[in-house]
Amino acid sequence: MRELTYWQAISEATMQCMADDPSVLVLGEGVDDHKGTFGTTKAAYERYGAARVVDVPNSENACAGIAIGAAANGLRPLVVHTRADFMFLALDVMVNLAAKWRYMYGDQGGVPVVTRGVVGRGWGQGATHSQSPHATFAHYAGLYVATPASPADAKGLLVTALRGDTPVVLIENRNLYPLTGPVPEEPEPVPFGVGRIARAGDDVTVVAASLMVHEAERAAEQLAARGISVEVVDVRSIRPLDERIICESVARTGRLVVADTSWARYGLAAEVAAVVAENVPETLRAPVRRVALPDSPAPVSWPLEEAFHPGADAVVEACLALVGDDRGSLPRLSSVAAEFHGPY
Protein backbone atom coordinates (compact mmCIF):
# COMPACT_ATOMS: atom_id res chain seq x y z
CA MET A 1 0.00 0.00 0.00
CA ARG A 2 1.22 3.52 -0.77
CA GLU A 3 2.41 5.57 2.20
CA LEU A 4 1.30 9.02 3.30
CA THR A 5 2.29 11.27 6.12
CA TYR A 6 -0.23 11.78 8.90
CA TRP A 7 -1.05 15.30 7.69
CA GLN A 8 -1.45 14.12 4.11
CA ALA A 9 -3.87 11.45 5.30
CA ILE A 10 -6.01 14.08 7.04
CA SER A 11 -5.92 16.28 3.98
CA GLU A 12 -6.92 13.39 1.74
CA ALA A 13 -9.83 12.40 3.98
CA THR A 14 -11.03 15.99 4.01
CA MET A 15 -10.80 16.29 0.23
CA GLN A 16 -12.54 12.98 -0.43
CA CYS A 17 -15.35 13.68 2.04
CA MET A 18 -15.88 17.15 0.55
CA ALA A 19 -16.04 15.61 -2.91
CA ASP A 20 -18.51 12.94 -1.80
CA ASP A 21 -20.73 15.22 0.26
CA PRO A 22 -21.37 18.85 -0.68
CA SER A 23 -22.62 19.55 2.84
CA VAL A 24 -19.11 19.18 4.32
CA LEU A 25 -17.35 22.48 4.96
CA VAL A 26 -14.24 23.44 6.92
CA LEU A 27 -14.22 26.26 9.47
CA GLY A 28 -11.22 27.56 11.35
CA GLU A 29 -8.95 30.45 12.03
CA GLY A 30 -6.40 30.59 9.23
CA VAL A 31 -7.51 27.42 7.46
CA ASP A 32 -6.99 29.31 4.20
CA ASP A 33 -3.51 30.64 4.92
CA HIS A 34 -0.23 29.60 3.31
CA LYS A 35 0.36 26.89 5.91
CA GLY A 36 -3.18 25.52 5.76
CA THR A 37 -3.25 24.08 9.29
CA PHE A 38 -0.01 22.08 8.95
CA GLY A 39 -1.00 21.34 5.37
CA THR A 40 -4.19 19.56 6.36
CA THR A 41 -6.60 22.16 4.92
CA LYS A 42 -4.41 23.56 2.16
CA ALA A 43 -5.47 21.29 -0.67
CA ALA A 44 -9.14 21.64 0.30
CA TYR A 45 -8.89 25.41 0.16
CA GLU A 46 -7.12 25.31 -3.19
CA ARG A 47 -9.79 23.00 -4.58
CA TYR A 48 -12.98 24.36 -2.98
CA GLY A 49 -12.09 27.94 -2.11
CA ALA A 50 -13.39 30.28 0.53
CA ALA A 51 -16.99 29.14 0.17
CA ARG A 52 -16.25 25.75 1.72
CA VAL A 53 -12.97 26.32 3.56
CA VAL A 54 -13.87 29.31 5.66
CA ASP A 55 -11.46 31.49 7.60
CA VAL A 56 -13.48 32.53 10.64
CA PRO A 57 -13.19 35.37 13.16
CA ASN A 58 -11.35 34.70 16.42
CA SER A 59 -14.59 33.59 18.03
CA GLU A 60 -14.19 29.99 19.12
CA ASN A 61 -17.36 30.00 21.19
CA ALA A 62 -19.61 31.47 18.52
CA CYS A 63 -18.03 29.45 15.72
CA ALA A 64 -18.64 26.21 17.58
CA GLY A 65 -22.24 27.29 18.11
CA ILE A 66 -22.56 28.33 14.48
CA ALA A 67 -21.27 24.90 13.48
CA ILE A 68 -23.96 23.32 15.66
CA GLY A 69 -26.67 25.45 14.09
CA ALA A 70 -25.38 24.64 10.63
CA ALA A 71 -25.35 20.95 11.50
CA ALA A 72 -28.90 21.18 12.85
CA ASN A 73 -29.88 22.64 9.48
CA GLY A 74 -28.26 20.30 7.00
CA LEU A 75 -24.51 20.93 6.89
CA ARG A 76 -21.55 18.93 8.19
CA PRO A 77 -19.03 21.39 9.56
CA LEU A 78 -15.46 20.36 10.24
CA VAL A 79 -14.11 22.84 12.79
CA VAL A 80 -10.33 23.12 13.09
CA HIS A 81 -8.37 24.52 16.05
CA THR A 82 -4.67 24.99 15.35
CA ARG A 83 -4.11 24.79 19.09
CA ALA A 84 -6.43 22.48 20.98
CA ASP A 85 -6.19 24.69 24.06
CA PHE A 86 -8.51 27.17 22.32
CA MET A 87 -11.26 24.55 22.39
CA PHE A 88 -11.86 25.51 26.01
CA LEU A 89 -13.37 28.73 24.68
CA ALA A 90 -15.95 26.57 22.94
CA LEU A 91 -16.63 24.21 25.85
CA ASP A 92 -20.11 25.52 26.59
CA VAL A 93 -21.68 24.76 23.27
CA MET A 94 -19.66 21.60 22.68
CA VAL A 95 -20.61 20.13 26.05
CA ASN A 96 -23.98 21.76 26.73
CA LEU A 97 -25.37 21.61 23.21
CA ALA A 98 -23.51 19.36 20.77
CA ALA A 99 -23.08 16.48 23.21
CA LYS A 100 -26.64 16.69 24.49
CA TRP A 101 -28.62 17.73 21.43
CA ARG A 102 -29.82 14.30 20.38
CA TYR A 103 -30.71 13.25 23.92
CA MET A 104 -32.34 16.36 25.32
CA TYR A 105 -34.54 16.87 22.27
CA GLY A 106 -35.84 13.33 22.50
CA ASP A 107 -33.67 11.45 19.99
CA GLN A 108 -34.90 13.30 16.90
CA GLY A 109 -31.47 13.69 15.31
CA GLY A 110 -28.02 14.85 16.27
CA VAL A 111 -25.70 17.64 15.27
CA PRO A 112 -22.81 16.10 13.31
CA VAL A 113 -20.09 18.63 14.06
CA VAL A 114 -16.54 17.32 13.76
CA THR A 115 -13.90 19.26 15.70
CA ARG A 116 -10.17 18.76 15.15
CA GLY A 117 -7.83 20.03 17.84
CA VAL A 118 -4.08 20.15 17.28
CA VAL A 119 -1.82 19.60 20.28
CA GLY A 120 1.10 21.99 20.02
CA ARG A 121 3.42 20.21 22.47
CA GLY A 122 7.12 20.98 21.97
CA TRP A 123 9.41 23.90 21.08
CA GLY A 124 8.51 25.70 24.27
CA GLN A 125 4.81 25.92 23.54
CA GLY A 126 4.29 25.95 27.26
CA ALA A 127 1.36 25.84 29.62
CA THR A 128 -1.46 26.93 27.32
CA HIS A 129 -0.35 25.65 23.91
CA SER A 130 0.66 22.08 24.78
CA GLN A 131 -2.42 20.46 26.27
CA SER A 132 -4.17 17.40 24.97
CA PRO A 133 -7.78 17.81 26.09
CA HIS A 134 -9.22 14.48 24.94
CA ALA A 135 -10.23 13.36 28.43
CA THR A 136 -12.05 16.63 29.06
CA PHE A 137 -14.35 16.01 26.12
CA ALA A 138 -14.57 12.26 26.66
CA HIS A 139 -16.11 12.86 30.07
CA TYR A 140 -19.40 13.88 28.48
CA ALA A 141 -21.83 11.36 27.04
CA GLY A 142 -22.92 12.28 23.55
CA LEU A 143 -19.50 12.99 22.04
CA TYR A 144 -17.12 10.62 20.31
CA VAL A 145 -13.47 11.37 21.03
CA ALA A 146 -10.53 9.87 19.19
CA THR A 147 -6.76 10.24 19.29
CA PRO A 148 -5.54 8.71 16.03
CA ALA A 149 -1.93 7.58 16.14
CA SER A 150 -1.33 6.32 12.60
CA PRO A 151 -1.88 8.02 9.25
CA ALA A 152 -4.40 5.34 8.30
CA ASP A 153 -6.43 5.99 11.43
CA ALA A 154 -6.14 9.75 11.03
CA LYS A 155 -7.83 9.29 7.69
CA GLY A 156 -10.27 6.54 8.56
CA LEU A 157 -11.56 8.09 11.79
CA LEU A 158 -12.07 11.44 10.08
CA VAL A 159 -14.01 9.72 7.31
CA THR A 160 -16.23 7.99 9.86
CA ALA A 161 -16.73 11.24 11.72
CA LEU A 162 -17.76 13.14 8.59
CA ARG A 163 -20.26 10.45 7.64
CA GLY A 164 -21.83 9.89 11.05
CA ASP A 165 -24.49 11.74 12.96
CA THR A 166 -22.58 12.06 16.26
CA PRO A 167 -20.48 15.08 17.20
CA VAL A 168 -16.83 14.08 17.21
CA VAL A 169 -13.65 15.49 18.73
CA LEU A 170 -10.39 14.43 17.10
CA ILE A 171 -7.21 15.28 18.97
CA GLU A 172 -4.07 15.34 16.81
CA ASN A 173 -0.60 15.70 18.28
CA ARG A 174 1.35 17.81 15.82
CA ASN A 175 4.45 15.66 16.35
CA LEU A 176 2.55 12.97 14.45
CA TYR A 177 2.17 15.03 11.28
CA PRO A 178 5.48 14.05 9.60
CA LEU A 179 5.15 10.34 10.44
CA THR A 180 4.44 8.08 7.48
CA GLY A 181 2.45 4.91 7.15
CA PRO A 182 0.31 2.90 4.73
CA VAL A 183 -3.01 4.58 4.01
CA PRO A 184 -5.81 3.16 1.84
CA GLU A 185 -6.46 5.26 -1.22
CA GLU A 186 -10.22 4.95 -0.84
CA PRO A 187 -11.99 6.77 1.99
CA GLU A 188 -12.37 3.65 4.12
CA PRO A 189 -13.99 4.39 7.46
CA VAL A 190 -12.36 3.28 10.71
CA PRO A 191 -14.99 2.65 13.38
CA PHE A 192 -15.01 4.40 16.73
CA GLY A 193 -14.66 2.11 19.72
CA VAL A 194 -12.42 -0.47 18.10
CA GLY A 195 -8.82 -0.57 19.32
CA ARG A 196 -5.85 -2.01 17.50
CA ILE A 197 -2.97 -4.24 18.52
CA ALA A 198 -0.08 -2.10 17.29
CA ARG A 199 2.43 -4.75 18.38
CA ALA A 200 1.79 -8.19 19.81
CA GLY A 201 3.50 -9.36 22.99
CA ASP A 202 3.14 -11.60 26.04
CA ASP A 203 4.73 -10.06 29.13
CA VAL A 204 3.37 -6.52 29.49
CA THR A 205 0.43 -4.68 27.95
CA VAL A 206 0.98 -1.02 27.17
CA VAL A 207 -2.32 0.72 26.42
CA ALA A 208 -1.49 3.95 24.63
CA ALA A 209 -3.09 6.85 22.81
CA SER A 210 -1.90 9.19 20.10
CA LEU A 211 1.85 9.94 20.15
CA MET A 212 2.37 7.50 23.03
CA VAL A 213 1.57 4.57 20.73
CA HIS A 214 4.79 5.34 18.87
CA GLU A 215 6.75 5.85 22.07
CA ALA A 216 5.44 2.50 23.31
CA GLU A 217 6.47 0.80 20.08
CA ARG A 218 10.01 2.16 20.47
CA ALA A 219 10.05 0.96 24.05
CA ALA A 220 8.79 -2.47 23.00
CA GLU A 221 11.52 -2.73 20.39
CA GLN A 222 14.22 -2.04 22.95
CA LEU A 223 12.74 -4.36 25.55
CA ALA A 224 12.46 -7.17 23.02
CA ALA A 225 16.24 -7.27 22.92
CA ARG A 226 16.12 -7.97 26.65
CA GLY A 227 13.67 -10.79 26.15
CA ILE A 228 10.73 -8.79 27.46
CA SER A 229 7.74 -9.09 25.15
CA VAL A 230 5.53 -5.98 25.16
CA GLU A 231 2.07 -5.77 23.61
CA VAL A 232 1.06 -2.29 22.50
CA VAL A 233 -2.66 -1.56 22.36
CA ASP A 234 -3.60 1.58 20.43
CA VAL A 235 -7.00 2.62 21.77
CA ARG A 236 -7.64 4.80 18.67
CA SER A 237 -10.81 6.23 20.16
CA ILE A 238 -11.17 6.95 23.84
CA ARG A 239 -14.97 7.36 23.75
CA PRO A 240 -16.24 4.84 23.00
CA LEU A 241 -13.32 2.90 24.46
CA ASP A 242 -12.62 -0.66 23.31
CA GLU A 243 -12.72 -2.29 26.73
CA ARG A 244 -12.61 -5.78 25.29
CA ILE A 245 -9.25 -5.44 23.54
CA ILE A 246 -7.75 -3.93 26.70
CA CYS A 247 -9.08 -6.60 29.03
CA GLU A 248 -8.18 -9.49 26.72
CA SER A 249 -4.63 -8.25 26.42
CA VAL A 250 -4.21 -7.71 30.15
CA ALA A 251 -5.74 -11.12 30.83
CA ARG A 252 -2.92 -12.65 28.76
CA THR A 253 0.02 -10.55 29.96
CA GLY A 254 -1.04 -9.91 33.56
CA ARG A 255 0.67 -6.51 33.53
CA LEU A 256 -0.60 -3.09 32.49
CA VAL A 257 1.07 0.19 31.67
CA VAL A 258 -1.13 3.03 30.41
CA ALA A 259 0.70 5.69 28.41
CA ASP A 260 -1.07 8.97 27.72
CA THR A 261 -0.18 12.44 26.44
CA SER A 262 -2.14 14.12 29.22
CA TRP A 263 -2.32 14.00 33.00
CA ALA A 264 -2.89 10.78 34.89
CA ARG A 265 -5.59 11.95 37.23
CA TYR A 266 -9.19 11.67 36.01
CA GLY A 267 -7.95 11.03 32.50
CA LEU A 268 -7.56 8.21 29.99
CA ALA A 269 -4.93 6.47 32.12
CA ALA A 270 -7.28 6.49 35.11
CA GLU A 271 -10.16 5.23 32.96
CA VAL A 272 -8.19 2.34 31.48
CA ALA A 273 -7.01 1.33 34.95
CA ALA A 274 -10.61 1.41 36.14
CA VAL A 275 -11.79 -0.73 33.22
CA VAL A 276 -9.20 -3.38 34.10
CA ALA A 277 -9.95 -3.14 37.82
CA GLU A 278 -13.65 -3.63 37.17
CA ASN A 279 -13.40 -6.43 34.64
CA VAL A 280 -10.23 -8.50 35.00
CA PRO A 281 -8.66 -7.58 38.37
CA GLU A 282 -7.71 -11.20 39.13
CA THR A 283 -5.44 -11.35 36.08
CA LEU A 284 -3.14 -8.56 37.29
CA ARG A 285 0.21 -9.86 38.52
CA ALA A 286 1.49 -6.40 39.43
CA PRO A 287 0.02 -2.98 40.14
CA VAL A 288 -0.97 -0.81 37.18
CA ARG A 289 1.53 1.82 36.09
CA ARG A 290 0.53 5.14 34.51
CA VAL A 291 2.94 6.96 32.23
CA ALA A 292 1.54 10.44 31.96
CA LEU A 293 2.28 14.09 32.58
CA PRO A 294 3.51 15.20 35.99
CA ASP A 295 1.07 17.31 38.02
CA SER A 296 2.07 20.73 36.79
CA PRO A 297 1.31 22.88 33.76
CA ALA A 298 3.68 22.43 30.82
CA PRO A 299 6.93 24.41 31.20
CA VAL A 300 8.79 26.25 28.44
CA SER A 301 12.51 25.91 29.27
CA TRP A 302 14.03 23.10 27.19
CA PRO A 303 15.30 20.82 29.97
CA LEU A 304 12.09 21.29 31.92
CA GLU A 305 10.00 20.55 28.85
CA GLU A 306 12.08 17.45 28.10
CA ALA A 307 11.51 16.23 31.63
CA PHE A 308 7.80 17.08 31.53
CA HIS A 309 6.68 15.03 28.52
CA PRO A 310 7.14 11.29 28.98
CA GLY A 311 8.52 9.38 26.02
CA ALA A 312 9.70 5.91 25.09
CA ASP A 313 12.16 5.85 27.95
CA ALA A 314 9.43 6.37 30.52
CA VAL A 315 7.53 3.45 29.02
CA VAL A 316 10.66 1.30 29.23
CA GLU A 317 11.08 2.17 32.90
CA ALA A 318 7.47 1.34 33.68
CA CYS A 319 7.62 -2.02 31.91
CA LEU A 320 10.89 -2.95 33.61
CA ALA A 321 9.42 -2.12 36.99
CA LEU A 322 6.44 -4.37 36.31
CA VAL A 323 8.56 -7.39 35.38
CA GLY A 324 10.96 -6.78 38.26
CA ASP A 325 13.91 -6.00 36.09
CA ASP A 326 16.23 -3.03 36.02
CA ARG A 327 17.64 -0.96 33.24
CA GLY A 328 21.13 -2.37 33.37
CA SER A 329 22.99 -1.34 30.24
CA LEU A 330 20.00 -0.31 28.17
CA PRO A 331 20.69 3.03 26.48
CA ARG A 332 18.32 5.93 26.96
CA LEU A 333 15.76 6.36 24.19
CA SER A 334 14.87 9.68 22.69
CA SER A 335 11.24 10.54 22.10
CA VAL A 336 9.49 10.76 18.75
CA ALA A 337 9.04 14.48 19.30
CA ALA A 338 12.80 15.03 19.59
CA GLU A 339 12.99 15.32 15.82
CA PHE A 340 10.79 18.40 15.79
CA HIS A 341 12.34 21.53 14.33
CA GLY A 342 11.43 25.20 14.78
CA PRO A 343 10.68 27.96 14.28
CA TYR A 344 7.71 27.40 16.65
Partner: peptide, 29 residues
Protein backbone atom coordinates in the same frame (compact mmCIF):
# COMPACT_ATOMS: atom_id res chain seq x y z
CA UNK B 1 -39.16 20.54 14.10
CA UNK B 2 -42.29 20.22 11.98
CA UNK B 3 -43.42 23.67 13.10
CA UNK B 4 -39.99 25.23 12.58
CA UNK B 5 -39.38 25.61 16.29
CA UNK B 6 -35.84 24.32 16.11
CA UNK B 7 -34.92 24.24 19.77
CA UNK B 8 -34.62 26.14 23.03
CA UNK B 9 -31.77 25.92 25.52
CA UNK B 10 -31.01 27.42 28.86
CA UNK B 11 -27.37 28.45 29.03
CA UNK B 12 -27.53 32.18 28.47
CA UNK B 13 -26.72 33.14 24.91
CA UNK B 14 -25.85 29.72 23.55
CA UNK B 15 -28.71 29.60 21.04
CA UNK B 16 -27.58 32.89 19.53
CA UNK B 17 -24.73 31.37 17.47
CA UNK B 18 -26.87 28.33 16.74
CA UNK B 19 -29.41 30.60 15.07
CA UNK B 20 -26.59 32.19 13.08
CA UNK B 21 -25.38 28.76 11.99
CA UNK B 22 -28.84 27.67 10.92
CA UNK B 23 -29.37 30.84 8.90
CA UNK B 24 -25.90 30.58 7.38
CA UNK B 25 -26.61 26.98 6.38
CA UNK B 26 -29.81 28.03 4.65
CA UNK B 27 -27.95 30.69 2.70
CA UNK B 28 -25.06 28.41 1.78
CA UNK B 29 -27.51 25.80 0.53
Amino acid sequence: RAAGFAGSAAILGEMIPVGVGAGWSAALR
